[in-house]
Design a protein around this nucleic acid. Structure first.
Lengths: 230, 230
DNA sequence: TTATTTATGATAGTAATACTATTATTTAAA
DNA sequence: TTTAAATAATAGTATTACTATCATAAATAA
């Protein structure tokens, strides 16, 4: 059952093996764990998400899920890391022919701030749901007491790599700019926060009426290019 | 026991009554709930914080705590709201003689990005711990599935008021600036995020070596004034 | 002062969560 | 074909997040 591997064109995101007990990409059950986690976390939020509900949704048992992931925090970190890895790939792919660094940075800001469409190259992952999860649950991956241990285990490497990539583009725009890493992480986080605020706490933004992501992009472009082209 | 009320100079922060079942400011037990919540959440993080542990720390019972707060989420929102209210007061107080809007905004950025000292005017609240809690737990108050209901109940009013205050100062600096609310909320959030990253995921910032908050202030000033003085 | 309300303390209990462990069964690899 | 590995089925435990009850202490009102 299922198409043989050689007939698929699939994007493989390399994952940190210490995030899981058994590699979820290597089995049908594993792929279902990822697929249904994304759906359930998106639908009910991370707090209400449990391995029991996940198991029921998949049609397996709680113990079955525990064979793949130690706990739901690692599963969250896994899917979030996956997303950062995928985004890094998207950015590389979508900017590969862009030579002008300003255009490139604009393109990156657009990618970071835009709800993605589901990428058919990645079978069991719905990127548009993942993007929503990142907005509302993303920071919970690192806002924990174990952040330093998790960091030592390289759990945040894809996120750090992405920030680094963005930082490099910032320096290409202006090699004298002093805060490329801070600006990069701020762009990513502000893109998500303003999106969340726009939809849920609109008075914290200036985008209340239309709820259009383009406004966030314009705001970010203004913020970023004022700073680096000053 | 305790000093009579008329002998104290106390700052009272007006709290939204639907956050609690019984007003914690009106009793010794209530004040202890706030005081020890701040200590325990700071020490162990919000996820590991339970009403049972809190009750044990205070020397009361779980049921005793439940008579004040329905659940730990409301308690978190309570102490966070308290902090925003207190910060609003601080900003008003510390900028009341500053007429130049640029100086005022700089002062505000400094207040937002600096670890506060414990304010002796507020008996049972340790503001420096609260500031740390805000950095690592603050966004958990609104990053939930009930954010819209909570917002309808005005749980985030102190935060929104603060953003509004900052937004007004931004407009005083440049009345043509288009995104005063978004910039205000971004300043507050970026101040906290960069602080968290500096201490826990330093490669996401450019402040790795010294771990000095002043660098965050300089970064924010650069970011903000480039945008609004453009 | 006594009566009465109100807050607290002590204790119990429940459903759900976050796991661990055991055994049987199925599926896949050697 | 044997053997190993993955899964399903089931059970069990400690902790969490509550709700409920009743006795007692403290504050307040009659």
């Amino acid at each position: 059952m299922g198409t043989p591997a050689f007939m698929k064109l699939e994007v493989q995101i390399k994952m940190n093996a210490s995030l899981y007990l058994r590699d979820p990409e290597q089995s049908e059950l594993g792929k279902n764990i990822i697929k249904f986690s994304i759906e359930l976390i998106h639908k009910h939020g991370f707090e209400a998400f449990t391995f029991k509900k996940l198991a029921e949704a998949i049609g397996t048992t709680e113990a079955g899920v525990y064979r793949y992931f130690e706990n739901k925090h690692k599963l969250l970190v896994y899917i979030i890391s996956w997303y950062w890895g995928w985004l890094e790939f998207q950015i590389g792919y979508q900017t590969k022919n862009v030579t002008n660094p300003v255009s490139k940075l604009k393109k990156v800001i657009t990618i970071l701030a835009t709800t993605v469409e589901d990428d058919i190259m990645t079978g069991y992952v719905d990127e548009s749901l993942l993007h929503q999860i990142l907005i509302s649950e993303g920071s919970k991956a690192y806002l924990t007491k174990q952040v330093s241990q998790d960091n030592k285990q390289e759990y945040f490497k894809p996120y750090k790599d992405l920030c680094n990539t963005v930082g490099i583009i910032i320096l290409e725009c202006n090699s004298k700019y002093k805060y490329p890493h801070s600006l990069a992480s701020s762009i990513i986080e502000v893109a998500h926060l303003q999106n969340f605020f726009m939809h849920n706490l609109p008075s914290l933004t200036d985008f209340s009426k239309s709820k259009n992501e383009d406004q966030i992009i314009i705001f970010l472009n203004d913020l970023v290019f004022s700073s680096i082209e000053k």
